Computed example of a mutant assay.
Amino acid sequence: MPDETLTIAIPEIRSLAMDACLACGASSSVAQSLVDATISAACEGTRDLGFPHLMDYLARFRSGGINGQARPKIQHPLPALIQVDADGGIAQLGFDLIFEDYVKRIRAFGVVTFTQKNSFTAGELGYYVRRLAAEGILSIAVANGPALMTVPGSRRKIFCTNPIAFAAPAGPGRRPVVIDQASSATAFVKLRSAADEKRSIPDSWALDGNGQPTTDASEAIKGALLPFGGYKGANMALMVELLAAGLSGAAWSMDGDDFIDETRRIDAGLTVIGMAPIDAVGFAERLDRYASRLEDDGVHVPGRNRDRPLSAHVTVPLALVEKLKHLSLSTPPDR
């Protein structure tokens, strides 16, 4: 039987989530960045990486697996390159701190790279590119983390889910094109959700602890995810790894700490490449006309989501709201 849900006003759930973050040991700046990204995922992106994923952050704030008081260190080794050390905190904060300057540099130089190491996993990757699209900027984002996925020819976990996201800005009143997908056949949060709900999974998603395909999500968590499309997904994961961890100096996925252990700090990498169209208005108008032609021909254009209007409310599991209320009243951990 599906969990009972609650439709709640965004200002109310924002306040509740902020209180929970602060009570679990996050600073106000960390909490603000995380809650903004969470609401964005819940309303415009991947809902599984919205409020359900927020609970992972809260647990790690309390355990010390995320530095809730992080102060990212920002460097500009080149005019078109921004490097950030996230100080063991969340990935979103470093991006927030440089965002205004990042947009200015992209408009000045045409193409600018942001790269970050030493953070928790990036969360919903579409969040970063959607924000740039709102500024009229095209962008590609890639991220890695601790190894969760094996590849053809190997018997061990080599890569994380290694997602890639892309966004292109649309005209006024229109949503951008947004593509956000993992290199793995499914996201780890979806696998864990299936295990929690005791749902079966396709046997192409993962291997069990003995290296055999499985439809049992609980057994899959003991094993490894599989890439989509065999070698094609594995090749994309490698490309993401080199851009996310290689450029940033973050840990290679196969060298990262255990993702399941909530007490361990994760040194994940994130790279975002922003590109300014020469004629932003003309580009957006051309994209709108092209996207409309595709949609009229039955093609799904990711991100446009005609059936998902923006709302002042969000629907979340009632149990999650109760958990947030409980956490918001707890005592911050003593560090």
Rank of each mutant, 00 (worst) to 15 (best):
S183N: 11
D3E: 15
T271V: 07
L207H: 04
L16D: 12
T113H: 03
A147I: 12
A70V: 00
V321A: 01
D101R: 07
I221F: 07
A234D: 14
P332C: 08
A245Y: 13
A108M: 10
Y128C: 00
P227R: 06
C160D: 14
R107P: 04
L327I: 02
Q212D: 09
H76S: 09
P202G: 13
G274N: 03
S311K: 03
H300T: 12
F95N: 03
T115S: 11
I66S: 08
P213Y: 02
Y231F: 14
A26P: 01
D56F: 01
N305V: 08
F51Q: 05
T263H: 15
S63T: 12
G209L: 00
E124L: 00
V151T: 09
G136H: 02
S28R: 03
A250R: 00
A20Q: 12
L97P: 07
L93N: 07
A141E: 05
H76V: 11
Q32H: 13
L22C: 05
H76Y: 14
S33Y: 04
A80D: 03
D307W: 04
P202N: 13
A37V: 03
D255S: 12
D203T: 13
A187M: 13
T271P: 06
R60G: 03
G153M: 02
A217S: 08
L125N: 06
K117A: 13
F166K: 04
R286D: 10
A143W: 01
Y127S: 11
Q212H: 04
L329T: 05
A182F: 15
G303L: 06
G274H: 08
S253G: 14
I273D: 02
L191D: 10
D261L: 08
G110E: 07
A224F: 04
R62G: 01
S218C: 13
L320I: 02
L125R: 11
T331S: 10
A195G: 05
I266K: 13
S204W: 10
D85I: 12
G65R: 05
A9S: 11
R105E: 07
R175M: 13
D56M: 07
A122N: 02
L207F: 04
D180T: 08
G25R: 06
K117L: 08
Q116P: 06
R289S: 10
L191R: 01
S200P: 05
L191M: 11
E262I: 14
D87F: 07
A244T: 08
F188N: 14
G136V: 08
T161R: 13
A268Y: 05
E124F: 07
